[in-house]
């Protein structure tokens, strides 16, 4: 009898030891689904400004969303990229997409090391590349980025913007910007000749051939004011505007926006103006102003879903 009890005790101790050891070394197989939104990022960033990139994670307790676990972060594509700094990682609210709950995380990036550029850097099919301290590197598609690093865009006092608004039309069931209303005041004592107004973006550009010397209603259909109007074009003739603004006077114009390959949802746009003053060619940049807002998911050019599998202890 004693022998049986002893054997039972030994078996119990052995089982407990194995069970405890198994619990200690057991690593749980885990999976996180991640959604990134493809969008158009048109920005002018000064050294104090940040770029916010939303990503959606099916779990909010993995290392993927732990700021302390992030070694470095950058915006890249196959040819180009910028190193950035993660200023903050903000957790938003829970949301549901296709019956799956996701947690929103906003990656707030700064680009302090960059000096002032005169032209934006274009990154087609840009990805946010996140390198974690455990060696994991993840890339998530975020759309197209056209970013100008410049802290001194408002140092030009030749002009003041008096009016700035967008004209929107619905094209292929998508409402987007099809032109800009702009009124400028000449602050100088000489004539200013506007020569070029540009987005400096390879996907869409202002149509120099069809500008009007007045502002139009924000909902005007361009097909009603231009004959045989097309929102798309293969290229733009490099003709120049020649709008003269007299000293202390203002000049107004509407300039259409043409899309090259496909129509995109644009909500925010900097505007680059080239003009001549006293025979000198100068530039004036209007900061990236958000003209319209429809919500992140509606405005996204597509969603990209990723899965990340790992073992957690």
């Amino acid at each position: 009898m004693k022998k049986k009890i002893l054997l039972l005790c030994v078996a119990l101790i052995l089982f407990s030891t194995i069970a405890s050891f198994s619990i200690l070394i057991y690593k749980k197989y885990d999976q996180v689904e991640i959604i990134s939104l493809k969008r158009e990022y048109n920005c002018v960033l000064s050294d104090t400004e940040t770029l916010s990139i939303p990503l959606y994670f099916s779990k909010n307790n993995s290392f993927l969303t732990n700021k302390k676990q992030i070694e470095s972060i950058s915006i890249i594509n196959n040819d180009n990229g910028f190193i950035s700094y993660l200023e903050d990682l903000k957790e938003g609210d829970k949301l549901t997409y296709k019956n799956q709950k996701y947690y929103e995380f906003i990656f707030i990036l700064s680009f302090k090391s960059y000096e002032d550029f005169s032209d934006p850097v274009y990154i087609k099919d840009a990805k946010i590349k996140i390198t974690y301290k455990n060696g994991v590197i993840e890339n998530f598609l975020i759309g197209n980025a056209n970013i100008l690093f410049n802290s001194n865009i408002s140092d030009n006092n030749d002009f003041s913007v008096l009016k700035l608004s967008a004209v929107t039309n619905t094209i292929d069931e998508m409402e987007t910007i099809v032109g800009i209303n702009l009124a400028l005041l000449n602050n100088t004592e000489n004539d200013i000749v506007l020569q070029r107004i540009s987005t400096k973006n390879v996907l869409y550009e202002f149509d120099y051939n069809n500008y009007l010397e007045r502002c139009i209603d924000q909902k005007t259909k361009l097909t009603e004011i231009y004959d045989n109007y097309s929102y798309k074009a293969i290229s733009i003739n490099d003709e120049r505007i020649s709008l003269i603004i007299e000293p202390s006077k203002s000049g107004s114009l509407f300039i259409p926006l043409l899309y090259f390959s496909e129509v995109k949802y644009i909500d925010k746009l900097p505007i680059y103006i080239e003009y001549s003053l006293n025979g000198e060619i100068k530039t004036f940049t209007i900061d990236d102003f958000r003209f319209m807002s429809k919500g992140l998911f509606v405005s996204a050019d597509g969603l990209v879903k990723y899965e990340y599998n790992y073992y957690s202890s």
Binding site: S160, V161, L162, K163, L164, S165, A166, T168, E175, N181, L185, Q218, F289, R290, F291, M292, S293, K294
Partner: peptide, 8 residues
Amino acid sequence: TEYYSIEI
């Protein structure tokens, strides 16, 4: 939808 404009 919301639309924003600047006027000075």
